[in-house]
Write a protein that binds this DNA or RNA. Structure first.
Lengths: 228, 228
DNA sequence: TATAATTATGCTGCATACAGAATACTTGCC
DNA sequence: GGCAAGTATTCTGTATGCAGCATAATTATA
């Protein structure tokens, strides 16, 4: 190692390398959004030529993105027929939520142990912002913050792999969750659970946190039930 | 639904639709194996032209497979530079095993509750076969059965999503685990833990099973430690 | 001889071309 | 009019071509 290396490391910390974005990445992100927003509805076939033209991209990077989406479980590929946006059965939903519950519990447990006060305060800030959006009934922003909180708790575990797995599963049910929270009474219930979650985390009360995560996930299943 | 539908369903159950295998699938499988076997070593750059020629395939399906591998976390893509086989740090290892432990515990817990006696007997059979390979020191076959047992326990939970997540993570550390079990004393330790696992499952003793899975995963970390 | 600048090569990212399968359409027949 | 067979069209799967970036090789310079 020469003396130059140190300087380079310092620089790379201050100015993180900007990573080139390929069309693959761009398309991938766009299509994820389209699925979550419902522009691409569950069960719908994905016409490569059409979507490609729509996004102004050739079929090559688009197909690569589709393969990634398939790996993430958001679309299903039927050879020689094409890809369709994946439809989740109630059994799928139950399975996803069961695993998600466990992952969040693991994340929560670790967060209680190792998260700094600042980290927890940041999560509280997200929660407050969410409540703000709730009070003005801005459902979209509320929803985004809601998701962000769940992610933040898991992230506070410091376990990247956990974050990744959680993110994958969360993406699968994102849309259903969004539709599911439609009724006001359902919405209120979710808000109350969230309040308890934050409090437990602040107190670093693992038992209480485990319980409320369990409750939150189980009631999510009920909230989403009639959507599928 | 017409009367014909019933016949079709029956037929499709008896003779499951053969699914066309695309080059993408084929290449994907091959490359996974190559990574696990070490033909593609961690950190090694993947030359598309080279591998393509080697497999007798054009770059298109190969690139698609690489994108999938990246999504599975087995390779890393650096835009305009290419893909490299992912290198796992000891922190990565710890994170993966932590999540894997939790997933297997969840699977084990559910298996104790809902698995049929036949299912458990089948797992016992796998275990016996594994012990057979152990006694003749056939490390490769032993290893495959070992992995199969872990997968089977998780599969006995009946939760597809859990199986999928478990499989993804298991794939990431497959190679390290294989190398890690090299010393005879390490090997023996793992075998003993497995024996306890099966017994706990047969007794449907959840607590004992949770404990041995915890032990098994933690000691796996130690066994693998010096490999990286 | 070591280093910097410059050229040359190789490889990736993307677009396009083509073959074959799947689907939609049309025509003929009952 | 409804169904079957045959034809046409669309779309996927794969290969290939080309531009641009990254790296290796080469030359120039101190």
């Amino acid at each position: 190692m020469t003396s130059g290396a140190g300087t380079l490391d310092e620089a790379s910390e201050a100015y993180p390398r900007i990573q080139r974005r390929t069309l693959h990445d761009e398309v991938l992100e766009r299509m994820r959004d389209m699925i979550i927003e419902g522009t691409l509805a569950p069960g719908q076939r994905i016409n490569e030529g059409l979507i490609g033209a729509q996004l102004g991209v050739s079929r090559t990077p688009l197909r690569e993105a589709i393969k990634t989406l398939a790996s993430e479980g958001l679309v299903e590929i039927q050879p020689a027929k094409g890809a369709i946006v994946r439809k989740f059965s109630s059994a799928d939903m139950r399975n996803i939520l069961e695993v998600l519950k466990n992952l969040e519990q693991l994340g929560g447990r670790m967060a209680c142990e190792i998260a700094s006060d600042e980290t927890i305060a940041a999560i509280r800030a997200l929660h407050d912002a969410m409540m703000e959006q709730y009070s003005v009934r801005n459902r979209l922003e509320y929803f985004k913050l809601n998701q962000a909180i769940h992610s933040a708790i898991v992230a506070a575990s410091g376990n990247d792999v956990l974050v990744e797995m959680h993110g994958t599963l969360q993406a699968r049910i994102k849309r259903l969750r969004f539709i599911g929270n439609e009724g006001p009474e359902k919405w209120a219930g979710a808000v109350a659970e969230h309040e308890t979650m934050i409090e437990s985390l602040e107190k670093r009360d693992v038992e209480a946190l485990m319980e409320v995560i369990r409750l939150h996930m189980d009631s999510t299943r009920l909230r989403v039930w009639d959507v599928l």
